[in-house]
Amino acid sequence: MCYQTKITKQKEEIAERFNAEVTDLNTYQPQEFCSAFEHPKTPVITHEAPNKVQLFHWGLIPSWSEDNSIRNYTLNARIETLAEKKSFKDVIQNRCLIIADGFYEWQWRNKNGSKKEKYLITLPSQELFSFAGIYTQWTDFNNDIINSYSIITTQANELMSEIHNTKQRMPIILKKQDEQHWLQGENYKDFKFPYSCNLIATSLENTTGQLGLF
């Protein structure tokens, strides 16, 4: 799964990497640690506005939801069951890129999880990338529109199986050349495991230690 990310690049770097406008990022602040359960607003690019970077909330709120409490359960969406889950099945084509430069995962060091080791997962040189995501709009009781998203997850690759060694899941990190394919609505099943890109895992308990490149 994926519940902690980081986005530490300046908005100008985001604009250059994704060839997109950042005029809607007036309140954007780089963050070393984004916790999903705080429902932060982070940079995304949607299929409806592919040349614009916007800030959406983490935790998808379906348009039919009576309140926003459901967002605690829609932080991630399993790619294998997208078409089955009520929260996701009607918005599969609402595609977005969720921009980041890293995410965190904890490796269980014993059977009950009382000992864990924290890892930072990045691309080489900690460059910007995007998670595959879906999004929606929800109108609250003040008639304000809330834009929100869910990160798509899949079966862990070899590296992430070693780190996320309990549930063995990972977010889908799109290859740069496939970002537009995702936005343009290509079959989502084409992006599940073994779809992967190069990742580096760095232990934050022992900053000299790294797990391999896959």
Rank of each mutant, 00 (worst) to 15 (best):
I7A: 14
Q10G: 12
K11Q: 04
E12N: 14
E12Y: 09
I14C: 02
A15N: 06
E16T: 13
E16N: 14
N19D: 04
A20I: 00
E21H: 08
L25H: 04
N26D: 13
N26H: 11
N26W: 03
Y28V: 06
P30D: 10
Q31H: 12
E32P: 04
E32S: 15
F37P: 11
E38V: 11
V44S: 01
E48M: 09
E48N: 07
E48K: 12
P50T: 05
P50V: 05
Q54P: 00
L55Y: 08
L55R: 02
H57G: 02
W58I: 02
G59A: 10
G59P: 08
I61P: 08
I61Q: 08
S63F: 15
S63L: 03
E66W: 03
E66T: 13
D67I: 06
D67H: 11
R71Q: 14
R71T: 07
N72D: 13
T74E: 08
T74C: 12
A77I: 05
A77D: 12
R78M: 09
R78E: 06
I79C: 10
T81G: 09
L82V: 01
D90A: 11
V91K: 13
V91P: 00
Q93K: 14
Q93A: 10
L97H: 01
D101A: 09
F103I: 09
W106I: 00
W108E: 06
R109W: 00
N110I: 04
K111G: 00
G113S: 08
G113H: 06
K115Q: 14
K116C: 02
Y119P: 07
Y119T: 01
L120T: 06
L120A: 09
I121L: 13
T122H: 05
T122R: 10
T122K: 09
P124L: 11
P124N: 07
Q126W: 01
Q126L: 03
S130C: 14
G133Y: 04
Y135S: 01
Y135H: 01
T136K: 04
W138D: 05
T139H: 02
F141N: 14
N142V: 00
N143E: 13
D144M: 08
I146A: 05
I146E: 14
I146T: 12
I146F: 05
N147W: 03
S148P: 10
Y149N: 04
T154V: 07
L159Y: 11
M160A: 07
S161V: 03
E162Q: 15
I163V: 14
H164I: 03
T166N: 15
I173K: 07
K175L: 12
K175P: 05
K176G: 02
Q177G: 02
H181V: 02
W182C: 00
Q184H: 12
E186Y: 11
E186H: 11
Y188I: 01
F191C: 00
F191L: 01
F193N: 10
P194F: 04
Y195V: 01
Y195S: 01
C197V: 14
C197M: 12
C197H: 00
N198L: 15
N198F: 13
N198Y: 13
T208R: 13
Q210C: 12
F214Y: 13
F214E: 12
F214M: 07
